[in-house]
């Protein structure tokens, strides 16, 4: 995979390029909007990593130019503005997603994959977290080498949580996905599902945990004791 990095700060560009190369992602660096335009016209990139503060203008103008050219290449914006400022300014309007400096390289890669997936460019059939693998097509769940048998609802629930691993899945969303809008849902039906799934994962020796955030939703994450070290 090759992406275009539009970044005018050489130190950051070099560090980022190195970090990405270590994860199998190659990148070309453009130092200005003008350079970026030429490179986009000359080559095909899987995604664009765009710093919004550039010497020859606002990075958002590049996004507008891309969209005017009917370029569908996904854009992940990087901003030095604060998260609050960015939200107040409605910064995310133009880009597919945005990150605030400084960021974790894993976070960047995850967002990049998410953006590519949304574009259908990355058909990731298998989701991995900890020692757990989940096939999104077949719905097969494997912990280590041990397959875990799931009911249809548990499979749906696991799929929902694993697609958003490390993030909270709201109760509302889970109920809508698992039970649909017509089916009556008991107040603790979801908690029962979570409890069963949690027991099965524990029994299989999974290094991930399903956390309940009462009043909010559920989250699957790598358990603290196995993440250490």
């Amino acid at each position: 995979m090759r992406l275009l990095m539009v970044e005018d700060e050489p130190a950051l560009a070099a560090a980022l390029a190195d970090a990405l190369r270590g994860r199998g992602i190659h990148s070309d660096v453009a130092g200005s909007i003008a350079d970026a335009r030429q490179m986009i016209e000359a080559a095909q990139y899987a995604a664009i990593l765009l710093d919004l503060g550039l010497p020859d203008g606002d990075g958002l103008s590049l996004i507008r130019w891309l969209r005017a050219q009917h370029h569908t290449v996904p854009v992940l914006a990087i901003t030095a503005r604060s998260a609050l400022d960015a939200r107040v300014a409605g910064l995310n309007a133009g880009a597919d997603d945005y990150l605030v400096k400084p960021f974790d390289i894993e976070e960047l890669v995850a967002r990049l994959h998410a953006v590519l997936r949304r574009q259908g460019q990355l058909a990731a059939a298998e989701l991995r977290i900890g020692n757990l693998r989940f096939d999104t097509v077949s719905g097969d769940l494997v912990v280590g080498e041990v397959p875990v048998l799931l009911t249809a609802r548990e499979r749906q629930f696991a799929s929902l949580l694993l697609r958003r691993a490390g993030q909270v899945v709201s109760k509302q969303l889970a109920e809508d996905q698992l039970y649909g809008l017509t089916e009556p849902v008991g107040s603790n039906a979801l908690e029962v599902q979570a409890h069963r799934l949690r027991r099965k994962l524990e029994a299989a020796g999974a290094t991930v945990r399903i956390e309940t955030i009462r009043g909010v939703g559920y989250m699957i994450r790598i358990a603290a004791d196995s993440a250490a070290g």
Binding site: E9, L12, A80, R81, D104, I105
Partner: peptide, 21 residues
């Protein structure tokens, strides 16, 4: 203050990436 913070972010981002090495 906003400008200073803004200017700090880019070197901080580079620093954050390089310390992974």
């Amino acid at each position: 203050v906003a400008n200073v913070a803004h200017e700090l972010r880019t070197p901080l981002a580079a620093h954050r990436l390089e310390l992974d090495a």
